[in-house]
């Protein structure tokens, strides 16, 4: 096997500026798309719970279409398809002195739409995981339905929502690798270009893989920190340790903590 170790270590430890730009773009697109997706996902989840049938229908259709079609196809339709049909073209824009490529905007929109459908389901099941009695207790104490939602339901639901949201963000970071299809110069795209010019195909893609691994590992650490903070606020035991989480060993306790219901102690 011809594996160029020198080239490998060099690319890994002293990556080229283009490669670092690609890495930065991957992170920025992921974070921005996720932030927007949280907002849209919450809106879709609220629509799904609305008293107005048309809103509920819209939410269901949205979730059905987005989750039922591949991200790759969605991206191509948004960027290439819309432009080809003369419907909409993503133009490069200048935002506070930074040039945002049309393809990058399309990437963010596409990932945001895709992610929001999944997030709305996470939000919905998070809200549903809170016992109905909590809402009734809040109402009986004189809270309005909105107040009960804000002060009682949401704080409890967030704890349940963070683990799946975090996992979803991990998935989102990895799926940025398909953005090369619409010509976004993110990390994978840069890697492909480098491999085409150097023919060090194996070495470069291993480096690319390791950088994705770095991103997802750092995020897992952050996510565990957030979960521990929320658990501490709720007076619950710590989330499962990072090592267990990264290497796929799931503890029984973590499963129990993920489904918090206030049970009378004597009934348990």
């Amino acid at each position: 096997m011809a594996f160029d170790w020198t080239y490998f270590w060099q690319s890994l430890l002293t990556p080229s500026p283009q490669f670092l730009n690609g890495l930065a773009l991957t992170v920025v697109i992921s974070v921005v798309a996720m932030a927007l997706a949280l907002v849209v996902g919450l809106l879709i989840a609220l629509m799904g719970r609305s008293r107005f049938l048309p809103l509920r229908i819209f939410a269901s259709l949205y979730i059905w279409v987005i989750r039922g079609t591949p991200l790759l196809v969605q991206l191509v339709i948004i960027y290439t398809g819309f432009a080809a049909a003369g419907l909409f073209r993503f133009e490069d824009v200048d935002l506070f002195g930074a040039l945002i490529k049309g393809a990058v905007q399309a990437a963010i929109v596409g990932l945001m739409l895709n992610e929001s459908a999944y997030i709305s389901e996470i939000v919905r099941s998070g809200l549903e995981s809170v016992d109905r009695g909590q809402n009734e207790a809040a109402l009986s104490l004189g809270m309005t339905p909105l107040g009960a939602m804000r002060r009682i339901i949401v704080p409890q639901a967030i704890r349940v929502m963070v683990p799946p949201l975090g996992n979803s963000f991990n998935g989102l970071m990895k799926s940025t690798s398909i953005l090369s299809i619409i010509g976004v110069a993110e990390m994978f795209q840069i890697g492909s270009t480098m491999s085409a010019s150097t023919f060090k195909v194996f070495e470069i893609y291993i480096v690319v893989a390791l950088y994705y691994l770095l991103l997802t590992t750092v995020w897992t650490l952050a996510q565990t920190g957030i979960e521990n903070m929320l658990n501490a606020q709720a007076g619950l035991p710590r989330a499962e340790p990072v090592l267990k989480r990264l290497f796929g060993l799931r503890s029984r306790r973590a499963a129990a903590v993920a489904a918090p219901v206030l049970q009378p102690v004597d009934a348990a």
Binding site: D131, G133, Q134, E136, A137, S140, I152, P155, Q156, R159, Q233, A234, G235, P260, L262, P264
Partner: peptide, 12 residues
């Protein structure tokens, strides 16, 4: 005031 069979205290 309403007191429920299953208490419904706020666990957080």
């Amino acid at each position: 005031g309403f007191v429920f069979q299953h208490f419904n205290l706020f666990p957080n």
